[in-house]
Every structure is written in C-alpha cells, then in structure tokens.
C-alpha cells in the first residue's frame, strides 16, 4: 500500500530546489567587477590634471614665442625638459592632498616612408611594471621634423601620450 505521508515534503523540496536554481542562475549571470569604490574619482582627477598639464605645456607664454614648449620637446626629443615641466605641473601642491604622481611619456607618429605607426619614448619617472592602475592622456602637436630620420623634414602631426599613475 502506498503511503502518502511524505508527499508534502517532496513538493517543498522540489520547490526549494527550483528557487535555489533560479537564484544561483541570477547571481552567476550577473557580471560583477570588483573595484575600489572611489577609484573612478581619482582616475578622473588624474586624467584632468594630466590633460591640463599637457595643455599648459602646449601654450607659449607670449606671442613672440612661436613654438610651444611641447613642440620644442618633441622636435628636439628633449625628455629632460618634458620631465621637468610635467613634474612641475602635476606635483605642484596647493592646499589639497599631496600628489605623488608617476608618469611615462612617449610620442607616436606615422612613418613617412613605410606608413607604420611608431612610438618614441620621451621620459618616464618610473618603469611600468604592469601592476599600476594608470590613466592615459594625449595631446596633438604639430612639429616640423624628420619622422623617421630618413624622411624629409616637414610639418607632421604627432600624438604625445602620457601614462599617469599614483604610487
């Protein structure tokens, strides 16, 4: 004879199992990216500071100077001047929190001879190890330069790229 005493528990079990399955499906289906809660804020600040610094470097101080410091840096491959100016702008401290910013700068051009894209490092305050959480800022600069050195000297548009991060 079949006893119906356990039926209720079976239905409960099946229902519970279904709920668990649905829950697990929902949880696993949601992509979760774990980042520090305020990392976007400091990224934003770093990006603004970096692009402001590049903008400042691309502004001559008066009308008698025809070439901005940044154009001069790219034309002469003057990594020291870049480092000096960029660090001065990014690490200047007002009343706010002290910045401890590291950078790695290069400029990119398209080769006039074989149309390949090449990057020339300018300077870096520290080598990138890959673990840094860096932001990238860029600035277009027009220089009269031989790019590459075998090409004729002419007006070229190059992209100055700077990676910025905090220690």
């Amino acid at each position: 004879m079949v006893n119906s005493g356990g039926q209720l528990y079976t239905i409960e079990g099946v229902a519970a199992g279904l709920i668990i399955l649905v829950t697990a499906y929902l949880v696993l289906n949601t992509t979760t990216v774990y980042t520090a809660g305020d990392s976007h804020i400091s990224d934003m600040q770093l990006e603004i500071l970096g692009s402001d610094a590049l903008k400042m470097m691309d502004t001559p101080l008066n009308s008698s100077v025809t070439e901005s410091p940044l154009q001069q840096i790219v034309r002469n491959d003057d990594g020291f001047l870049f480092r000096e100016m960029f660090m001065r702008y990014t690490n200047v401290s007002g009343f706010g929190p002290k910045h401890d910013i590291q950078f790695s700068a290069s400029y990119t051009y398209e080769s006039a001879t074989d149309a390949s894209i090449n990057s020339v490092p300018l300077n870096a305050s520290r080598n990138l190890t890959g673990g840094e959480h860096a932001v990238r800022v860029t600035k277009w600069v027009i220089v009269n330069k031989k790019l590459p050195s075998s090409a004729p000297s002419e007006d070229r548009a190059v992209l100055v790229e700077v990676l910025l991060w905090r220690d």
Partner: peptide, 8 residues
C-alpha cells in the same frame, strides 16, 4: 570633494 586645475 576636491579638484585641481592648471591654468594660465
């Protein structure tokens, strides 16, 4: 909240 801008 804090922001620092560079300007001429």
């Amino acid at each position: 909240g804090y922001i620092r801008r560079l300007a001429m």
